[in-house]
């Protein structure tokens, strides 16, 4: 992802804004240009920030840019409106299925000659 592409999608990425079909109401994240169900037009849609872990795994074969700090957990999270999305987990040593999580803005990685910092959403356990 180049710096410009990252900048273009910053609002959606920082605020967890997906898209919703104006024809059939299907919700998607990452946002889409057309609806995968009916081909309809998509409009911005604010996803709920809370949900629960459905499945998780720990990435141990690390990709470039995410290989600075060792293995890390990723999950399929079901948000409060029923939308299921893929996401990184944070602030959690032992993830569990069914664990309540909430979206927080975090640094994801740095890249490039100028050490540009890329931010985005991760999910952490709901406190208390």
């Amino acid at each position: 992802m180049t710096e410009i592409s990252d900048w273009i999608y910053r609002i959606s990425r920082y605020r967890l804004i997906g898209s919703k079909c104006v024809e059939c109401g299907e919700v998607a994240y990452p946002p889409r240009l057309t609806c995968y169900k009916c081909g309809g037009k998509m409009a911005d849609y604010q996803l709920p920030r809370r949900g629960k872990i459905l499945y998780y795994t720990v990435v141990k074969s690390l990709p470039e840019r995410y290989n600075r700090y060792g293995a890390y957990p990723v999950a399929i999270v079901e948000l409060e409106d029923g939308t299921r999305i893929f996401g990184l987990l944070t602030d959690v040593d032992n993830p569990e299925k069914g664990m309540e999580v909430e979206a927080v803005l975090r640094k994801l990685y740095t890249y490039g000659e100028h050490g540009k910092i890329i931010y985005g959403v991760k999910f952490r356990p709901v406190l208390g």
Partner: peptide
């Protein structure tokens, strides 16, 4: 790339999650 690369997922971890399901 928005779904996988940006999110720290990989081909293998994506498939690992689907394998669980």
């Amino acid at each position: 790339s928005f779904l996988v690369d940006y999110n720290g997922l990989t081909s293998f971890s994506l498939q690992a999650l689907i394998a669980q399901m």
